[in-house]
Nucleic acid binder design. Structure first.
Length: 884
DNA sequence: TATATCACG
DNA sequence: ACGTACGTGATATAT
């Protein structure tokens, strides 16, 4: 028998706040109300063993109650900030507990619960409602029992209709009348002045309801009669206000509240983050977080500052050292400054200044850093590798990167800093970088004693974090992903970045002059046609010219004013010739500023190359991203922009640029994970997937598919990968939503396996709170159960897209690791230079060209075996443009 | 520092 | 009824 618990979140957290003594965590956040709430919740879970749990929250400042009575809840003290700051903490904790949270704009928590209990009555479900508000008694029935907090929060008194009768002599519905007569100071509901609980009960026992009391005043006498007659209207309104609304348009169902028990890997960190150590212990959750911290308290970090004299002591023990922290400054690791180095193990760390590190005396330390056989654990070792390299020091042997592990454990966590991680794992907190060094223009490297101590503490924190992450990786089955894919890849990326790709400065400048001419010409023409000179780069000024001065129709608005993006301009083009010129100007201005001027700045004086930096811990799906400059968005779609690719050339004479890209990797991945027979068949036969889709969806032979049909099918395929919606597709194809919906329906009719996948993956996300790729990469989707339609829909599309995009990312990463091995094994001179999501770019000497033309696609295609073949297409030429 | 725009997969 | 396609980074203004 299912057992449901519905909790009035707002009521309980208020109760808890006032019932608990103040409590703050190490960051100074108040946590007492969350603590009280949690103890109550754990008790409920233990005592009632519910199968379904839900916590309802008030949403929106104005509820329907305010419409009739503006003073509703007026006079109530504003929620103290010490409590407000705890709402997000509570919600995050509940997320970690896997407990559903419902809220609905314009309604209060008790209305949501009222609606659900009505449904429960209709369906005969056993429900326990928990609140601190006596009003809830009006919901009681045979099926619905009410638990009210007594004194604190953990002590809960249960009521069913019989117990209400016994206590008050009233039926549940009469509880509303009770409040109508006596009012409620906390909600600013007036009732009848002078009528308290005693009088109200007496009146109700005599008359039965507010209405009958008001009708029967003849039977009363004296002061009482006067007061009731004078405040009849107040009583009626009060009753109305006290009535819980039981028909809110709630979308969620009972299944959305399913509770599968606390999962240590989710609930543990959530509790640890709040520093609820006693609760962790009570749940006997692995000291994941508690005992480790006692093993390495920050206070016990022994730090010293190495000098030329003491360094010999250090290198006598270097072999046993496996933790280091290298502090750098500057976003671009190729140009980062070295601030200092801390190395050590087991709580004893030594600081080396950059000067010392470069001294003759430190030669053994540098040898140690470059020795691949000496394992090293630390934070952001990819950046460390590049920064050291830029200062002539080689780095090898990275065995555990804390930042990379943190990314795999939660790729959307925005605070991946060491300090953020100590907080997350309930370790002794670390001072923030900013407060030691300052930030931005205020950045200052502190004196050696302070800096040394700080960096040693960071190293110690890294050492303390690692065992916790190892445990988490283990329980998430991510060991292979971490040790065999991401860690090796990190070194490969560093190699690619150090290698860089040659860019021809003169050609780029020539291209710039060509663009410049056209830009000037277009500017002059635009100023002439519009009759004004203005800053064309300012969307604001452009908007004023187009819409105010020239009176063109407004198609779309941004939150700050008129929208002037390309989509809008396309629509305006027929009205005025100036618009076409603006579109062309925009295109060239983009090429000029980002790709000519921007790229020129990034070409190194030293080697004439561009050294990008791949970020391995940013994209939520597992993709890489590229910075300084971004080499993953070099133009290709438009010929003008594509010319930029001509400047990327081999770094040695006679070599070629060779590029290989996966064909339709995302749809192939989809075919595999959805196991859709039709989609798989298409790839087994190596058909043109968009034509095939069109022929299936429109029910015509492949040779009868025309350009429009193929274009539509292509858009549908894209939509499918992105997590389709009729609206999105309609925008893309410039058709109505209805037509788009029809396309989608027809698509799913044909590709039923895909439909099943889309349904299942969303269910899975709801259940687990995350989705996974083939290689067990995870992405948490905390908003999958949100009551806000937009948030929830977004999470649903993400649930559909992430396994596809993420598995494709897994595959090309595998290919990169295997390709690196293949090049080494064969002792080839060819070098892997770039990755562009589904494409790998190499530079290849002439005598290896024939081999590489076979080897690269072969490795890519075999990177991971799926139920459909993977296909990689290779091309080469004198530059990146020709390798198409 | 935020917003709008646009380059890529 | 709700209002968006998924994932990034760089550039220019405007604040």
């Amino acid at each position: 028998m299912d057992k449901f618990i519905l909790i009035d979140g707002n009521s309980i957290i208020y109760r808890a706040f006032f019932a608990m003594p103040p409590l703050t965590n190490s960051k100074g956040l108040h946590t007492n109300a969350v603590y009280g709430f949690t103890t109550m919740l754990l008790r409920l879970l233990e005592e009632h063993k519910p199968t379904h749990v839900m916590v309802a929250f008030d949403a929106g400042k104005v509820t329907f109650r305010h419409e009739g009575y503006q003073e509703y809840k007026g006079g109530r003290e504003k929620t103290p900030p010490e409590l407000s700051e705890q709402f997000p903490l509570l919600k995050e904790l509940l997320q970690g507990f896997g407990i559903a949270q419902f809220e609905l704009a314009g309604f209060e928590a008790d209305d949501i619960i009222g609606t659900l209990t009505k449904r429960a009555d209709e369906a005969g479900r056993q429900v326990l409602v928990v609140s601190g508000d006596k009003d809830m008694l009006q919901l009681a029935s045979e099926n619905v029992h009410i638990g009210l907090t007594r004194k604190g929060v953990t002590d809960i008194e249960l009521y069913d209709p019989a117990q209400i009768k016994e206590r008050y002599g009233l039926t549940p519905l009469q509880i509303i009348d009770l409040k109508g007569l006596m009012g409620d100071a906390s909600d600013n509901i007036p009732g009848i002045p002078g009528v308290g609980e005693k009088t109200a009960l007496k009146l109700l026992h005599q008359f039965g309801s507010v209405e009958e009391v008001l009708n029967g005043t003849g039977e009363l006498k004296g002061k009482m009669k006067e007061k009731i007659e004078a405040h009849a209207e107040d009583a009626r309104m009060s009753k109305q206000l006290a009535t819980i609304h039981r028909e809110v348009p709630l979308e969620q169902t009972w299944e959305d509240m399913q509770f599968d028990g606390l999962k240590e890997e989710l609930a543990g960190p959530a509790l640890a983050k709040l520093e609820f150590k006693s609760l962790l212990e009570r749940l006997s959750f692995r000291a994941s977080v508690v005992s480790e911290q006692e093993a390495v308290p920050a206070a016990a970090v022994e730090s010293s500052i190495a000098t030329e004299e003491t360094i010999s002591e250090l290198f006598s023990s270097l072999e046993s050292i496996d933790v280091l922290h290298v502090e750098t400054h500057g976003d671009n690791p190729h140009q980062a400054k070295l601030i200092g180095l801390a190395v050590g193990s087991a709580g004893i760390y030594t600081f080396l200044s950059p000067e010392l590190l470069q001294s003759d005396a430190a030669a053994p330390v540098r040898e140690w850093l470059g020795n691949a056989d000496q394992p090293k654990r630390g934070y952001d070792l990819h950046r460390v590798d590049l920064a050291l390299h830029a200062h002539g020091i080689e780095f090898a042997g990275a065995s555990f990167d804390v930042q990379l592990a943190a990314y795999l454990l939660d790729p959307t966590e925005s605070n991946q800093t060491i300090s953020g991680l100590t907080t997350k794992y309930g370790l002794p907190s670390l001072v923030e970088d900013d407060s030691v060094m300052g930030k931005g223009a205020k950045y200052r490297v502190p004196e050696a004693d302070i800096l040394g101590d700080f960096l040693c503490r960071k190293a110690a924190a890294v050492a303390a974090i690692i065992p916790l992450q190892e445990q988490a990786l283990e329980s998430n089955e991510m060991n292979a992903l971490f040790h065999e894919l991401e860690m090796p890849l990190s070194r490969i990326l560093a190699d690619m970045e150090k290698q860089g790709i040659k860019a021809n400065t003169a050609d780029l400048q020539a291209l710039g002059s060509e663009f410049e001419e056209n830009i000037s010409r277009l500017m002059a023409e635009i100023y002439k046609l519009s009759g004004t000179e203005f800053n064309l780069n300012s969307p604001k000024q452009l908007g004023e010219i187009l819409f105010d001065k020239l009176g063109l129709p407004v198609v779309k608005k941004t939150k700050t004013g008129y929208s002037t993006d390309a989509e809008v301009l396309e629509k305006l083009a027929p009205y005025n010739d100036v618009v076409k010129h603006i579109l062309q100007y925009r295109q060239l201005a983009k090429l000029q500023s980002t790709y000519v001027e921007g790229l020129l700045k990034e070409i190194s004086d030293k080697d004439g190359k561009v050294h990008t930096f791949y970020r391995q811990t940013i994209a939520a799906t597992g993709r890489l991203s590229s910075q300084f400059p971004n080499l993953q968005n070099i133009p290709i779609r438009m010929e003008e922009g594509r010319k930029i690719r001509k400047v990327f050339v081999p770094s040695e004479p006679g070599w070629s640029i060779l590029a290989a890209d996966y064909s339709q990797i995302e749809l192939r991945v989809l075919a595999h994970i959805s196991d859709d027979e039709r989609l798989k068949e298409a790839f087994v036969q190596d058909m043109d997937i968009h034509t095939k889709t069109a022929s299936d969806v429109f029910g015509v032979k492949p040779e009868e598919v025309d350009g429009d049909m193929r274009r539509s099918a292509k858009a549908v395929n894209f939509g499918i990968v992105y997590g389709i919606s009729d609206y999105g597709l309609s925008q893309n194809l410039h058709i109505t939503r209805k037509e788009a919906a029809q396309f989608i329906d027809q698509y799913f009719e044909v590709f039923q396996g895909v439909r099943r996948y889309m349904d299942d993956i969303v269910k899975e996300a709801r259940q687990d709170g995350y989705v996974k790729t083939l290689l067990e990469r995870r992405r948490y989707l905390p908003e999958i159960n949100a009551s806000n339609f937009n948030l929830r829909s977004f999470a649903e599309r993400t649930a559909m897209n992430t396994p596809i995009q993420g598995t494709a990312a897994d595959i090309i990463k595998l290919a990169m690791v295997q390709m690196d091995e293949a090049l080494r094994e064969r002792k080839l001179k060819s070098r892997m230079l770039l990755q562009v999501h589904d494409e790998l770019v190499f530079e290849v000497p002439a005598d290896e060209l024939e081999l590489m033309k076979e080897l690269v696609p072969s490795v890519m295609e075999k990177a991971l075996e799926l139920s459909v073949p993977l296909k990689a297409e290779v091309s080469y030429g004198e530059n990146w443009y020709e390798a198409k």
